[in-house]
């Protein structure tokens, strides 16, 4: 059964039927937004049942849209949080990625600006490495991108997508060793990107991120995970009631090969490790429960089948 990421948009009226249906089909609801009269669900649904879901949703005026990035957490890295780099570009990119289902975190480096003086500290490196991939939003000059990028990606183990004002070909030519993805014509701007020619690079960011993450998913499929992250999320939430007791927009964030659980590591880590999934298999058996560098959250890294010999 292949699960396909989709977004469901519809009215509040009878939307619980859709929730039940997704559950019965063996899919998972990753995030649920209530916006006045509207409900937006980010979910994973079996591929062969999408048409059926559409049929059920039609009389409710619901819309089923493919959203390639549901179930991923992406770091949008900005050289700093100064007025030079925010809110434009960083927020536009983050917002655009969110529209296709991704959970994005904007990471403003403390000293990522400049050419020679650009730096990445250990905390920033570790936080970026907890994501599925990182989108680096760099500036307008080839010369600067060429010199500063090696410093900014030192120690980064997740795929990196580089965006800058030079064309994609130029970026490919100057970046050594190569990055996983490139988006040209998207540098520092001082206005909101609204025109069609400005939205085009944003679409290319989505395309490039989707391409990079599909490759990552294929890599994982060769040695599948011991449990699907979405399933683990549902189990954790049922047993620990995390969503019910939290005010976070995404109390449990699903990643491609892990979860970020927004509860205190010191208090909950042991309880989480010992939690039984089914037939005596505990969370600790299938995943590493690690302290996240983001606040005091817990970061769960799901182990592959080859390591655990367990598939639940």
């Amino acid at each position: 059964m292949t699960l396909v990421p989709i977004t469901y948009k519809g009215g509040v009226y009878r939307h619980d039927e859709i929730l039940d249906l997704i559950d019965d089909l063996g899919g998972y609801v990753i995030q649920k937004h209530h916006l006045a009269q509207e409900v937006v669900l980010q979910c994973l649904v079996p591929k062969e049942d999408i048409e059926y879901l559409r049929t059920v949703a039609r009389p409710l005026a619901g819309e089923v849209i493919e959203a390639p990035l549901v179930g991923t957490e992406i770091a949008v890295v900005s050289p700093s949080l100064e007025i030079h780099h925010l809110p434009h570009t960083s927020c536009d990119v983050a917002e655009y990625l969110r529209r296709v289902g991704a959970k994005t975190n904007v990471i403003g480096l403390s000293r990522g600006f400049g050419k020679r003086i650009a730096n990445l500290n250990i905390e920033e490196r570790d936080v970026i490495n907890e994501h599925d991939c990182a989108v680096y939003l760099l500036g307008n000059f080839e010369e600067c991108i060429k010199e500063k990028l090696p410093t900014l990606r030192r120690g980064i183990t997740v795929p990196v997508i580089v965006a800058g004002a030079p064309s994609k070909e130029r970026l490919q030519a100057i970046i050594d060793p190569p990055a996983e993805g490139y988006v040209g014509d998207l540098g520092r701007v001082a206005h909101r990107m609204r025109k069609e020619e400005e939205l085009d690079p944003l679409d290319r960011v989505v395309e490039e991120v989707s391409r990079v993450l599909s490759a990552y998913r294929e890599e994982i499929a060769k040695d599948p995970l011991s449990i699907s992250p979405a399933r683990l999320m549902v189990i954790l939430d049922e047993k620990l009631q995390i969503t019910a007791e939290s005010t976070h927009p995404t109390p449990i964030t699903v990643q491609i090969a892990g979860l970020r659980v927004k509860v205190a590591y010191e208090t909950y880590a042991e309880q989480l490790r010992a939690l039984e999934i089914e037939e005596g298999v505990t969370v600790g058996d299938v995943a590493e429960v690690l302290p996240s560098r983001m606040r005091n959250y817990i970061w769960l890294k799901i182990r592959p089948f080859s390591e655990t010999n367990i598939m639940v």
Binding site: G139, N140, F141, E142, E143, A165, P166, S167, R170, G187, R188, V189, A190, H191
Partner: peptide
């Protein structure tokens, strides 16, 4: 010298001075 960067900065300067 960098034409792409120069154009980008022209736009940035116009935007900021306008704002």
């Amino acid at each position: 010298e960098d034409a792409v960067g120069g154009d980008a900065y022209r736009q940035i300067a116009a935007d900021i001075l306008g704002d």
